[in-house]
Design a binder for these strands. Structure first.
Length: 372
RNA sequence: GGGCGGAUUGCAGAGUGGCCAAAUGCAUCAGACUGUAAAUCUGACGUCUCCGACUUCGGUGGUUCGAAUCCACCUCCUCCCA
C-alpha cells in the first residue's frame, strides 16, 4: 500500500460474499461499498461541493484527459492541486484518459508507445503515453490515480481484445515505473473485453501490481447486463481480497446492487448526473421522467422516502416546470437528488452486508424500484 | 370612402400550377442516456381500419388533365391617402 493508504475489510455478507470495508486515504476514510459521483472537469456538474458532502459523497472522480486540455495540469498544480483548486477536501480519483481513447476513438491513433490524438476542442495534436499520463495525474494530485489503459470496444475480435489487453498491461508497468509520488494510490485495470480467457489473463497480470486497489474496466460498454455479471463472477475468485475493487463506469441502481453482490467495492458513473440534466430522476419506485406531462399537476415530492434538499422542498410539478422552461435549477436539484439516491442505496447495502441480509435488501429494493 | 399588401397544418414562417400532408424554427409529446465531446441526442407532431386511404393552405365559385399556388366575388387584417 502507498503511504497513508490502507483497506480494512470489515464484514462479508454470509450469503452473497458482498464486502463492507473502509478505505483509508490521505484525504479521509471511504466507507465501502461506495458510489463515486463524476466531476470530469473538476466539478460535479451543477452541484456545490458543500451539497455533495451533505448528500453523502465521500470521494469524487475527475479526469486526466479533460483537465490536461483545460485548464492544463500545470495550472492545477500551480493552484495548489486539484483538491484546493476545486474546493474539495475529501478524496479524489482521477481517471487516466483511457476511457477517452475509447469514447473519442475517431480522434485518435493507438500505438504501442501511446495514443496520438486530436483534441476534441480545437483539433490540436497530442500524445498520451503512460509516462505522460502519470505526470499529469501527479500534477493534479488526486488520492487515487488510474493507470493509462485501452478500453476495447464491444464487438472487438479476440485478437483485437488481446492486443488491447496486452497494451494495457505494458502500459501498467510503464505507469508504475514513471510514478514518483508515494502519496497516491495507483490502480491497475483489468481488461479483456468479453473474452473469459483474456479477462482471467488480464487479472493475473494486473494482480501482482494491485497493491492499493484494482479496477475492472471495459464493462458496461454495450454488452447485455447479464454478460457483465458473468464476467464479474468469472474473475471474482481471483480478485485480491485485501484491496478495494473498483468497477469502472457502472452505476445504474440495479448494476450497483448486482456489482456489490459480486464483491465490488467501488463504482463511478455519470448516469445519475446525466439523466438528471436530461430530466429523469431515480426514485424508490423506479425511474421517473419528471419532464413528462403526467407530472404537470403532481404536487408531491419526487421521492417521499428521500431526505435530500430537493425532495424536502419541491414538488414534481415545480421540477417539471423548471425543466420545461430550461431553468438551471432543474438539473441542479435533480442531480443532487440522484446522487443522494445512489449514496443512500450504497449505505443501505453496506448496512445490509453487516446484517448478512443483502439478498433480502436487494429483493425488497427491486420489488419497489422494479427490475430493468 | 379610395389605394397597396396580406390571410398556409399550435405559433412564427417558407412555398406562387404537378416532385406538397406542405421547408425551417419554436412550442408540444415521447424515447435514449452507465470510467461525461451530453443542460445532449433521437423520434413523433392533419385524420384514419396507418407500407395505403382520406380531408386540408380565410370563404364561395371558376379556369385546368392537375390549384396552397391562376381568375372572380365575399370576409377579415396591416399600412398609406382622405
Amino acid at each position: 500500500m502507498s503511504k497513508n493508504f490502507s483497506f480494512e475489510l470489515q464484514h462479508i455478507d454470509k450469503y452473497t460474499g458482498a464486502r463492507a470495508g473502509v478505505y483509508h486515504t490521505p484525504h479521509g476514510d471511504i466507507k465501502t461499498p461506495v458510489y463515486m459521483p463524476v466531476g470530469t472537469q473538476a466539478t460535479v456538474k451543477g452541484v456545490y461541493p458543500r451539497d455533495l458532502k451533505e448528500a453523502g459523497s465521500q470521494i469524487i472522480l475527475s479526469n486526466t484527459y479533460h483537465l490536461y486540455l483545460r485548464p492544463g495540469d500545470e495550472l492545477v498544480k500551480k493552484a495548489g492541486g486539484l483538491h484546493k483548486f476545486m474546493n474539495w477536501d475529501r478524496p479524489i480519483l482521477t481517471d487516466s484518459g483511457g476511457f477517452q481513447v475509447f469514447s473519442l476513438t475517431k480522434l485518435n491513433k493507438i500505438k504501442e508507445e501511446g495514443v496520438y490524438f486530436n483534441s476534441h476542442i480545437d483539433g490540436s495534436k497530442h500524445l498520451f503515453t503512460p509516462e505522460k499520463v502519470i505526470s499529469i495525474e501527479e500534477n493534479l494530485g488526486a488520492d487515487i490515480i488510474m493507470q493509462f489503459d485501452q478500453c476495447s470496444e464491444y464487438g472487438y475480435t479476440h485478437e483485437q481484445a488481446e492486443a488491447a489487453m496486452n497494451k494495457t498491461y505494458n502500459w501498467l508497468k510503464r505507469c508504475l515505473d514513471a510514478k514518483s509520488r508515494d502519496d497516491q494510490a495507483l490502480f491497475p485495470i483489468v481488461q479483456g473485453n468479453m473474452y473469459d480467457d483474456l479477462r482471467m489473463q488480464s487479472l493475473k497480470l494486473a494482480k501482482p501490481h494491485a497493491t492499493d486497489g484494482i479496477a475492472i474496466g471495459g464493462l458496461s460498454v454495450g454488452e447485455p447486463k447479464q454478460r457483465m455479471y458473468e464476467i464479474l463472477e468469472l474473475i471474482r475468485p481471483e480478485l485480491p481480497e485485501s484491496v478495494p475493487r473498483y468497477l469502472m463506469g457502472v452505476g445504474s441502481p440495479d448494476c450497483l446492487i448486482e456489482g456489490v453482490k459480486r464483491g465490488v467495492d467501488m463504482f463511478d458513473c455519470v448516469l445519475a448526473t446525466r439523466i438528471a440534466r436530461n430530466g429523469t430522476a431515480f426514485t424508490s419506485n423506479g425511474k421517473a421522467v419528471v419532464r413528462n406531462a403526467v407530472y404537470a399537476e403532481d404536487f408531491t415530492a419526487l421521492d417521499e422516502k428521500c431526505g435530500c434538499y430537493c425532495c424536502k422542498n419541491y414538488t414534481k410539478a415545480y421540477l417539471r416546470h423548471l425543466i420545461n422552461v430550461n431553468e438551471m435549477l432543474a438539473p441542479m436539484l435533480l442531480s443532487l437528488h440522484n446522487i443522494t439516491f445512489l449514496h443512500k442505496l450504497m449505505s443501505d447495502m453496506r448496512e445490509a452486508i453487516f446484517a448478512d441480509s443483502l439478498n433480502d435488501f436487494a429483493a425488497q429494493f427491486y420489488s419497489e424500484f422494479g427490475k430493468e
